[in-house]
Amino acid sequence: MQIEINERPTEIAAGTTLAQLRDAVKPEADLCIRNGHPEREDVPLAPGDRVVFIRRGEIPAAEDLEALLAARHTPGVHARIKSATVGIAGCGGLGSAIAVALARTGVGNLILADFDLVEPSNLNRQQYFVDQIGLPKVLALRDNLARINPYVRVTAHNERLTPENIPARFAAVEVMVEAFDAADQKAMLAQVFLNKVPGKPLVMGSGMAGFGPSNTVVTRRAATNLYLIGDGETAARPGEGLMAPRVGIAAHHQANAVLRLLLGEEPA
């Protein structure tokens, strides 16, 4: 009969039990997951069962890991986005969360740029850790992405983006993400990217400070190749800071817009 072992179709003898299979395939395993649930007792296996053997704390072998990571990806989607390249300008509250979402989804190539260092005040919303304080954000984020999905190829530019370097840094992207903090920098990136790298979509964020209603954050098409996410008006200012929930909502709108564009769907 055919079952799946570690996400790969495998032929086994009818009547094999879970413990027999573990002893044959991975005797050191201390967790046996059958059809999504850990099994404490030995059970007979049925055709079509999906079995994963895990040793706690062990990183799976490279040949198994990619199939295991891709197990929840939608067939067809994964193949398409694995070859895709997405640029992310700014690795703060928006950019770090967008990068994590795209890496988990399986986007194959990310180009990151930021000149900033991880500061304690960033940890209220940005995807960094206390032990990364003081590190360049792009390098800290590259490390974090590698711990999530080592099959994402990350190019990290630890520098300030300018009208001069933006076209060269992001010439190869299929979809570009703006994730800056300052409004004038958002405008600069929109002008330079859309003018100098024409024909490619840009997904931007504007208006996600504070703790206003979640549903005022929307995705809309603001120009031919410009998708704008946010409430459009809530700027970060004293008394209305940037917080993880609403920045995360906007970041995941942006990540989903990227995914839809890569799959040929209109984001808004």
Partner: peptide, 10 residues
């Protein structure tokens, strides 16, 4: 013309 205005925060 499309004119898009940005506010700070990210």
């Amino acid at each position: 013309l499309e004119i898009v205005q940005f506010v700070g925060g990210g």
